[in-house]
């Protein structure tokens, strides 16, 4: 089956063959990167939930009843989300949720910066107020989250990459 002459299949709106080969792997790579970051972020907080709750309070955004739920729930949520993305189960949902989470993080950090708070984002543990002499890292933190947001958007746009449980569920083999 060569694609010579008149028999060329219609492929309007489909990626060209070369791209069609690459995109699924890019999506898989994006899934793995995003998943690994979320697992790492969650794991760094999960060992000290009290600290995680204090980090949330340091943003001074949430009422007291909500801070423990977010501070204690988020690390586990992040780990679960990361694992889902890595194994490729419900990838579109995972990517959309991940993107939403990143938007919330970006808003939270931007709000802290705008109000002149001097805090560590607590993204990978160690949150709360900075000690005197420590510099805030808001720009770097925002840039990192924005980069991850782009990756999450790619995965949400074309969730069907290679090597995922979703593929297996759809009876296409895991590859």
């Amino acid at each position: 089956m060569t694609t010579t002459g008149t028999a060329a299949a219609p492929r309007a709106g489909r990626p060209r063959p070369a791209l069609a080969q690459v995109v699924p792997w890019l999506v898989t790579l994006g899934r793995l990167v995003l998943g690994a970051v979320f697992v790492a972020a969650g794991a760094s907080k999960v060992t000290d939930l009290a600290n995680s709750v204090r980090s949330v309070r340091a943003y001074r955004l949430l009422p007291e009843w909500a801070a423990p739920a977010v501070g204690a729930g988020l690390p586990f949520f992040e780990i679960a989300l990361g694992v889902l993305l890595i194994v490729g189960l419900g990838v579109r949902v995972g990517a959309v949720v991940g993107a939403a989470l990143l938007v919330i993080f970006i808003a939270g950090i931007a709000a802290a910066a705008a109000r002149g708070l001097r805090i560590d984002c607590g993204c990978f543990g160690n949150g709360g107020d900075l000690r005197a002499g420590q510099q805030t890292q808001y720009l770097g933190e925002l840039a990192r989250d924005a980069g991850l947001l782009v990756v999450a958007a790619l995965v949400a746009w074309r969730p069907r990459g290679r090597v995922s449980i979703d593929n297996w569920i759809h009876g296409e083999g895991t590859a």
Binding site: L49, A72, A80
Partner: peptide
């Protein structure tokens, strides 16, 4: 899975 993980986290904290 996501909801269950969050609930477990809050329960462990409490």
């Amino acid at each position: 899975v996501l909801i269950a993980a969050t609930v477990i986290g809050v329960a462990i904290y409490n």
